[in-house]
C-alpha cells in the first residue's frame, strides 16, 4: 500500500476523528480540573459553557446567510471573522457568563454553585432551542467554516484539524499547569482543602474562587469553539446534560482530579471505553431496542463513575505532590 492509501484509509480516518473529539473533550476536562480539581468547585453546567463557546464561535465566524439559505436560517449575528477571533470570543463570552453566575453563588455553600450551574446550562439550552432569531432555534446552525479548509485536499483535512486541536491542547495544558503550580494555584488548593484556613491566612476566598471559575469556563469556551468548527453543524440537542456535562466529570475523575496530565489522559481513556461500548451494544442489544441502546451505555458510565468514586477516587494518575516554584 502506498502512503497515500494508508493516510486516507477508513480505519485511520476513524482513529483521527476519534483523537480530534477526545482532544476537544480533554479541553473540557482541563477546564473542570481548574474548577473541581484545583479549587473544589462543583460545576454541573459544563454543557452550558460548551454551548456558549460553540454558538459564539459559530456566530462570529459564519457570514450572515444569503439567498436561499436565508429562508431557512436565521441568526442574530454573522460577523465572518477568522477562526482565531471566534475562539477568543468564545472564551471571553464564557468567562463573562461564569463571572455573572459566580457572583451570587460563590459566597454560599458548595451545593448552590452546583444547582446554579445546572440552571444556567438548562436555561441556555432552552434559549437556543426556542429563540429562532438568535441561532436558528432547534434546527441549529449548519456550514460553520472550518479553518484552512481550502488549503488542503479534503481527504487530508482531518490531519490539519487534529494538528489545531493538539496545538491548542498543548498550549492550554502548559499554561494551566504553570498557573496551578504557581502561588496562585496553591491558594486555590488551600481553598479546596479548607477555605476557612485560607481566609484566616488573609486570602480573599471569594475572589480566588471567582477567578478559578472564570478561567475554567474560558477553557471550556475554547473547547466549545473547537467542537463547532470540527462538527460544522451545531444544534441545542448536542448540549444535553449527560453528553455535555456528565461524561466530562467521568473523564476527570477517571484520569485523576487535580492532575493536568490526568485530566487529558482521562478524556482519551474515556473515549476509548465509550467507543468500545458502542461495539459491544451493537453486537449484544437486539435491533428493536436500538433507541434504548445508548442508555445501556449511559448506565455503564454512571456505574463506572460511582465505582471510581468509591474505589479509586484519585483516578488513574492521582494528584502529584509538588512544591511551588518561586
Amino acid at each position: 500500500m502506498t502512503i497515500e492509501a494508508i493516510l486516507t484509509s477508513g480505519i485511520l480516518n476513524y482513529l483521527i476523528g476519534f483523537l480530534i473529539v477526545a482532544g476537544i473533550y480533554a479541553l473540557f476536562s482541563l477546564g473542570l480540573n481548574v474548577h473541581f480539581g484545583g479549587t473544589g468547585l462543583i460545576n454541573f453546567g459544563i454543557a452550558g459553557f460548551f454551548a456558549i463557546g460553540a454558538y459564539t464561535a459559530a456566530l462570529v465566524t459564519k457570514p450572515l446567510p444569503t439567498g436561499e439559505l436565508a429562508v431557512y436560517t436565521q441568526q442574530a449575528l454573522g460577523l465572518d471573522q477568522p477562526f482565531l477571533v471566534g475562539v477568543i470570543a468564545a472564551a471571553a463570552v464564557c468567562g463573562l457568563v461564569a463571572l455573572l453566575i459566580g457572583i451570587p453563588t460563590l459566597r454560599l455553600r458548595e451545593d448552590y454553585l452546583a444547582i446554579a450551574t445546572i440552571g444556567i446550562a438548562e436555561s441556555i439550552r432552552l434559549v437556543f432551542n426556542n429563540e429562532e432569531w438568535l441561532a436558528n432555534g432547534s434546527k441549529g446552525l449548519v456550514g460553520i467554516p472550518r479553518p484552512f479548509y481550502d488549503q488542503v485536499a479534503p481527504e487530508y483535512y482531518n490531519y490539519v484539524y487534529l494538528g489545531i486541536v493538539v496545538l491548542t491542547l498543548a498550549v492550554v495544558a502548559v499554561l494551566l499547569e504553570r498557573l496551578l503550580r504557581s502561588p496562585w494555584g496553591r491558594v486555590l488548593r488551600s481553598i479546596r482543602e479548607d477555605e476557612v484556613v485560607a481566609a484566616a491566612y488573609g486570602k480573599n476566598v471569594f475572589a480566588f474562587k471567582l477567578q478559578a471559575l472564570v478561567l475554567g469556563a474560558m477553557v471550556m469556551g475554547v473547547g466549545g469553539a473547537l467542537y463547532a468548527h470540527n462538527a460544522g453543524t451545531i444544534s441545542p440537542g448536542v448540549f444535553e446534560p449527560v453528553f455535555g456535562t456528565f461524561i466530562v466529570w467521568v473523564m476527570l475523575i477517571l484520569g485523576g482530579s487535580g492532575n493536568t496530565k490526568g485530566a487529558i489522559l482521562g478524556a482519551f481513556v474515556f473515549w476509548a471505553i465509550w467507543a468500545g461500548s458502542q461495539f459491544a451494544t451493537d453486537a449484544l442489544v437486539p435491533h428493536e431496542f436500538n433507541s434504548r441502546a445508548p442508555h445501556v451505555r449511559f448506565l455503564l458510565i454512571e456505574t463506572l463513575l460511582v465505582l471510581m468514586l468509591l474505589f479509586r477516587p484519585k483516578g488513574i494518575l492521582g494528584e502529584e505532590r509538588y512544591v511551588s516554584r518561586l
Binding site: 473541581f36 473544589g40 462543583i42 454541573f44 458548595e110 451545593d111 452546583a114 446534560p241 449527560v242 456528565f246 466529570w249 475523575i253 433507541s291 434504548r292 442508555h295 445501556v296 449511559f298 448506565l299 454512571e302 456505574t303 463513575l305 460511582v306 468514586l309 477516587p313
Partner: peptide, 26 residues
C-alpha cells in the same frame, strides 16, 4: 467530603433515568 456525595447523587440521578429509558423507552 460533601462534594463527593453531590457527584455521586448526580451519577445516581442519570443512572435511574437510564433505567427508565431502558425499561419503558423514550
Amino acid at each position: 467530603a460533601p462534594v463527593m456525595f453531590v457527584i455521586g447523587s448526580l451519577a445516581a440521578a442519570f443512572a435511574l433515568r437510564a433505567l427508565l429509558f431502558i425499561i419503558w423507552g423514550p
